[in-house]
Lab assay of single mutants.
Amino acid sequence: MSIQHFRVALIPFFAAFCLPVFAHPETLVKVKDAEDQLGARVGYIELDLNSGKILESFRPEERFPMMSTFKVLLCGAVLSRVDAGQEQLGRRIHYSQNDLVEYSPVTEKHLTDGMTVRELCSAAITMSDNTAANLLLTTIGGPKELTAFLHNMGDHVTRLDRWEPELNEAIPNDERDTTMPAAMATTLRKLLTGELLTLASRQQLIDWMEADKVAGPLLRSALPAGWFIADKSGAGERGSRGIIAALGPDGKPSRIVVIYTTGSQATMDERNRQIAEIGASLIKHW
């Protein structure tokens, strides 16, 4: 067993022997301040990774656009098919120029040779490549099948209805392509620590998230040296922004954090800054 596999296998073990965790309302004060600064709703939840206990939450059962955070769930569904012998990570998928959609920095470079399922998941999570996500959605049967996968996990809230990039439209009061912070946090925890996926697939999923290259201005910008984070960000229309993450000190994750916002007129930089400040408060009061 590799060191990384050992780390993920012992996530519940280490967490069980940690000192009790206590909620700190100071972080919620910052979440509410972010709402004021952005002029928009902000949803927040913080779960203990081992027990699933909610440590703090704000608007945990209000719907927010998922945006690209759905790509972690998508690759979880792909990995479940791999575990069941219905898919192979090494299978190569070929596609054409007509398949390319807006923001496809990886797939646009491989029109000639195609990409493997493993490479597509890596591109979808680490670079948020939209064509990679659409190609992977095709392998599982489309958005409705991802929703069905989530329902089978016990998540009857999260739903995907459309493809990239239309799913980022974020129309107010439109339930399409949305989740709730509580539902997303619980589902992410199941994917990373539950028995739904094999140990190898859980490790692969967290490795992809740990290698995320496009979430630097968010929670990662607030992390002290030595902290662990595996995350996936999302951005959408109407001032929408979000991030889902597993993080913790001492090089291992111990909490799940989900943050979503929508309806702001603020710039992307300002949305990023507010999420980073929430992260800084979380870490300060850990």
Rank of each mutant, 00 (worst) to 15 (best):
Q4K: 12
Q4T: 09
H5G: 07
F6P: 06
R7G: 11
R7S: 09
R7D: 07
R7P: 11
V8I: 14
A9L: 07
A9D: 05
A9K: 12
A9M: 14
I11C: 14
P12Y: 13
P12S: 12
P12N: 12
F13G: 07
F13H: 06
F14M: 11
F14H: 04
F14P: 02
A15I: 14
A16E: 05
A16Y: 08
F17E: 04
F17I: 11
F17T: 12
C18R: 01
P20T: 07
P20I: 02
V21W: 05
F22S: 12
A23S: 08
H24F: 10
P25I: 09
P25F: 08
P25Q: 13
P25E: 12
E26R: 07
E26A: 13
E26V: 10
L28G: 07
V29P: 04
V31A: 08
K32Q: 15
D33S: 10
A34S: 13
A34G: 07
E35V: 04
D36F: 15
D36I: 14
Q37C: 11
Q37T: 12
L38F: 08
L38P: 07
L38V: 07
G39S: 13
V42C: 08
V42E: 00
Y44C: 03
I45C: 13
I45H: 05
E46S: 15
E46G: 05
L47P: 00
L47V: 14
D48Y: 04
N50I: 11
G52Q: 06
G52D: 08
L55M: 15
R59S: 05
P60N: 09
P60I: 12
E61F: 10
E61S: 12
E61C: 08
R63F: 06
P65S: 05
M66K: 00
M66D: 00
M66S: 03
M67K: 02
T69W: 00
T69G: 02
F70M: 14
F70T: 06
V72F: 03
V72S: 06
V72Y: 01
L73P: 09
L73M: 11
L73N: 05
L74G: 02
C75P: 01
G76F: 04
A77H: 10
V78D: 01
V78P: 00
V78A: 06
V78C: 05
L79F: 04
S80Y: 15
S80N: 12
V82C: 11
V82M: 06
V82A: 10
D83L: 02
A84D: 11
G85Y: 08
G85T: 07
Q86K: 12
Q86W: 10
Q86F: 10
Q86D: 13
Q88I: 11
R91N: 08
R92S: 10
I93G: 02
H94M: 14
Y95C: 03
S96V: 11
S96H: 11
D99P: 05
L100H: 04
Y103C: 05
S104K: 02
S104V: 04
P105S: 05
T107V: 08
T107W: 01
T107P: 01
K109Q: 14
K109E: 14
H110T: 06
T112A: 13
T112L: 15
T112H: 14
D113Q: 12
G114D: 04
G114Y: 05
M115G: 02
M115Q: 07
R118T: 14
R118Y: 15
E119V: 02
A123K: 02
A123Y: 04
A123P: 00
A124Q: 02
T126G: 12
S128D: 00
D129N: 01
T131I: 01
T131L: 06
A132M: 00
A133T: 11
N134Y: 04
L135N: 03
L135Y: 03
L135M: 10
L137I: 09
T138F: 10
T138Y: 12
T138W: 10
G142S: 06
P143F: 03
P143Q: 06
E145H: 14
E145S: 12
E145W: 09
E145Q: 12
L146S: 01
L146R: 00
L146N: 02
L146C: 05
T147Y: 04
T147L: 07
A148F: 11
F149E: 07
F149K: 07
F149N: 06
L150V: 12
H151T: 11
H151S: 11
N152E: 15
N152Q: 15
M153P: 01
H156S: 11
H156M: 08
T158K: 00
R159G: 04
R159S: 08
L160H: 06
D161R: 03
D161S: 07
R162Q: 08
R162L: 05
R162C: 06
W163I: 12
W163D: 08
P165Q: 06
P165D: 06
E166F: 14
L167A: 08
N168E: 04
N168H: 05
E169F: 12
A170H: 09
A170M: 07
A170D: 08
A170E: 06
I171C: 14
N173E: 14
D174I: 03
E175N: 13
R176C: 09
T178W: 01
P181T: 05
P181D: 00
P181H: 01
P181W: 00
M184P: 00
A185G: 14
A185I: 03
T186P: 08
T186K: 13
T187S: 12
L188F: 13
L188A: 07
L188G: 04
K190I: 09
K190G: 13
K190Q: 12
L191K: 01
L192E: 02
T193L: 12
G194T: 15
G194S: 14
E195G: 14
T198S: 13
T198Y: 07
L199G: 15
L199I: 15
L199N: 15
A200F: 09
R202M: 07
R202P: 01
Q203K: 14
Q204A: 12
Q204M: 15
L205C: 03
I206K: 12
W208T: 03
M209S: 02
M209G: 03
E210V: 14
A211Q: 14
A211K: 12
V214W: 05
R220F: 03
S221R: 13
A222R: 15
A225H: 14
A225R: 13
G226H: 11
G226V: 04
W227D: 00
F228P: 01
I229Q: 02
A230R: 02
D231H: 04
K232N: 01
S233R: 01
G234E: 01
G236S: 07
E237D: 13
E237I: 10
R238Y: 13
G239Y: 02
G239W: 01
S240E: 09
R241Y: 02
I244W: 00
A246T: 11
A246E: 06
A246P: 00
A246N: 05
L247F: 05
P249K: 13
D250V: 10
G251C: 09
G251V: 07
G251I: 07
G251E: 11
G251D: 11
G251N: 15
K252H: 14
K252Q: 11
K252G: 10
P253T: 08
S254T: 14
S254F: 08
I256G: 02
I256F: 05
V257Y: 05
V257L: 09
V258T: 07
I259P: 00
I259K: 00
I259W: 03
I259Y: 04
Y260K: 00
T261I: 12
T261N: 03
T262K: 09
T262M: 09
G263K: 06
S264P: 03
A266P: 04
T267Y: 08
T267C: 10
D269F: 12
D269Y: 13
E270P: 03
R271V: 10
R271Y: 03
R271P: 05
N272K: 02
N272E: 06
N272T: 08
N272M: 03
R273E: 14
R273S: 10
I275K: 00
A276S: 14
A276C: 11
A276T: 10
E277N: 11
I278L: 10
I278A: 02
A280L: 11
S281V: 15
I283G: 04
K284M: 10
H285D: 07
